[in-house]
């Protein structure tokens, strides 16, 4: 008993003097480990974000030595020369895609146009393109619908007409609540609506003038591209058969 008490006294003295036993260190370690899990949770939740932060710090140019290894240190100069040549040749090939004659670019989102000669802007202005209206109607007893959108892509001028006459399609009558006449009926032919000129792009789509100049810059058409009188005149004179029209 006396011996045990002496041992306890010794432990007490050890504790007071700062000496720590293995058992206490073990439990300290376990306590730290348990709390460590709590500290780790925010790491796990945010480690994609932390990866981003760390990435910013460790980004460097160590990859250059791998590129040099792939190319071969003794071939750097010749490889550089061949790359310069190859890139220049690709640039030339791309340049060939730019039309040699005047071309027109139509932006259907902003409803504007740019007339270009190679890289030079000849004229800019407002136009009107498809309204994206879906017209639901009937032809006879059958349900029919038409979507009024301007097609996108590259087109060529197929026909140039001065003082064009508009042959009204079926939807023009359906839209006005009129019965659809026969194909050659006189009411099909409308004089003056298309303005002074029309440039045909195929599938019934045209670039033409308009009576509704206040709507230029807005998407109001049935798919054709409407221009103001002066712009149309310039475009008609500049664009020949086969000239390219880019619509996006």
């Amino acid at each position: 008993m006396k011996e045990t008490n002496l041992l306890r006294d010794q432990k007490l003295t050890d504790a007071k003097s700062g000496k720590v036993g293995g058992k206490r260190l073990f439990w300290t370690f376990i306590l730290g480990l348990i709390l460590s899990v709590g500290v780790a949770i925010p790491f796990v939740q945010n480690f994609y974000k932390l990866q981003q932060i760390v990435s910013g710090f460790i980004a460097g140019n160590s990859s250059l030595s791998y590129t040099a290894g792939r190319v071969g240190i003794d071939k750097i100069k010749s490889y550089q020369a061949s790359l310069t040549k190859e890139t220049a040749s690709l640039g030339k090939k791309l340049e060939e895609f730019i039309p040699k004659d005047i071309y027109l670019i139509i932006n259907t989102s902003n409803n504007d146009f740019v007339l270009m000669n190679k890289r030079e802007v000849l004229r800019k202005g407002k136009c009107s393109t498809g309204s994206y209206t879906l017209l639901k109607g009937k032809r006879g007893n059958k349900d029919q619908q038409w979507i009024f959108k301007t097609p996108r892509g590259m087109f060529k001028i197929r026909l140039r007409v001065k003082d064009p006459v508009w042959t009204k399609p079926d939807w023009a009558f359906v839209e006005e609540g009129l019965p659809v006449p026969s194909a050659r009926h006189p009411s099909r032919f409308d004089y003056g609506t298309l303005g002074d000129y029309s440039l045909h792009l195929g599938d019934g789509y045209m670039i033409h003038g308009t009576l509704y100049k206040r709507f230029l810059g807005m998407p109001v058409t049935h798919g054709c591209i409407r221009m103001g009188d002066e712009d149309l005149e310039v475009i008609f004179q500049a664009m020949q058969l086969g000239s390219k029209v880019y619509i996006y």
Binding site: G18, V20, R24, L25, T28, F29, I30, L31, G32, L33, L35, S36, V37, V39, A40, F43, V44, F47, L50, Q51, V54
Partner: peptide, 25 residues
């Protein structure tokens, strides 16, 4: 207050986050 105990505690507290930083980041 005890340096040895404090060291063990900090080591244990940081061991999982450090391993995670190395392994996952």
């Amino acid at each position: 207050t005890n340096l040895k105990q404090l060291s063990v505690f900090i080591l244990a507290l940081l061991i999982i986050p450090i391993l995670l930083v190395v392994y996952a980041i």
